[in-house]
């Protein structure tokens, strides 16, 4: 790979080395996310999937290496402009203060608005469309604390859609969602990413979900080593079994790879 910035890529990490509390997460990771691409991060519990996402969000510093968003180093972006390009779905959400569903989704417009500016009709339309896409448009005026866990997760995804970032980072997007909503939500995000030529990177413990929706897989092995490549290259019985320290089988079913513990 050339050392000049490749502005065609949405995200590029260069020799990214990360550790947390003395434990290596990845060493010299060169991850590339091209427009329209989805990347899945897999790995055992505690291998640093969330930490890696948080580093991409600039919540924590890398030990070494650079992260480039659209060819520009993250620290060269202003915090606010960055938030119009880069958004994250957290593993869990906090709703301590009372708020309606629509108010919550509209939070996603924050980075797009200037100081003193209020959300206008257009912003509200964006939020309502996102709620509709996630099937919770009817709940717009409901209190968030009356929603079920799955409905909250869909609201969180709708809030992220309202933010309209170029790169979607998802931390366990399937949390609290039943199997139908998992597939439906990710289908929708996948379609959005393709249409908008955006990028997506999701950390998940669900190998089948990653296999179904991702073009590239980053499998963290827990000691700073990793396997990065296409689904076919990474999602093999050998790689997975050693990564999870558990015998994992792969079968082909209806043209799709399916994974399950032996």
């Amino acid at each position: 790979m050339s050392s000049t910035a490749n502005s065609n890529l949405i995200l590029e990490t260069r020799d990214l080395t990360l550790s947390i509390a003395g434990r290596a997460i990845c060493k010299q990771l060169n991850l590339h996310i091209a427009p329209g691409q989805c990347v899945g991060i897999l790995g055992q519990n505690g291998t640093g999937k969330t930490t890696l996402l948080h580093t991409l969000m600039q919540f924590r510093k890398a030990d070494h290496g650079d992260i480039l968003l659209e060819g520009k180093r993250l620290d060269e972006w202003s915090k606010k402009t960055l938030a119009t390009q880069l958004g994250i779905l957290f593993q869990s959400t906090q709703d301590i203060m009372p708020s309606t569903v629509l108010e919550t989704a509209l939070i996603g417009r924050h980075p797009h608005l200037a100081d003193w500016q209020w959300e206008d009709v257009q912003d509200e339309q964006i939020a309502r469309n996102a709620l509709a896409a996630m099937g919770i448009a009817d709940f717009a005026q409901r209190e968030v604390n009356t929603l079920s866990g799955g409905e909250r997760q869909r609201l969180a995804i709708a809030t992220l859609l309202t933010q309209q970032p170029r790169l979607f980072l998802l931390d366990e997007p399937g949390n609290h969602l039943d199997i139908a909503y998992q597939v439906q939500s990710l289908n929708l995000l996948r379609k959005h990413v393709l249409e908008q030529q955006a990028g997506l990177c999701m950390a998940t413990h669900d190998i089948n979900l990653a296999a179904r929706f991702c073009d590239q897989i980053l499998l963290l092995l827990g000691d700073g080593e990793f396997v990065l490549g296409s689904c076919a290259q990474v999602l093999t019985q050998e790689h997975l079994s050693s990564a999870y320290a558990c015998e994992i089988r792969r079968i082909e079913l209806e043209g799709r790879a399916v994974f399950f513990p032996a």
């Binding site: 969000m57 708020s99 108010e103 919550t104 939070i107 996603g108």
Partner: peptide
């Protein structure tokens, strides 16, 4: 009033606020 919208975001948690561009 200048920070009021940022306060709305901050009441969703520090990380969420940070993700939405609040210092």
């Amino acid at each position: 009033m200048y920070f009021a919208r940022a306060l709305n975001v901050l009441s969703r948690g520090d990380l969420q606020a940070s993700a939405l561009g609040v210092n």
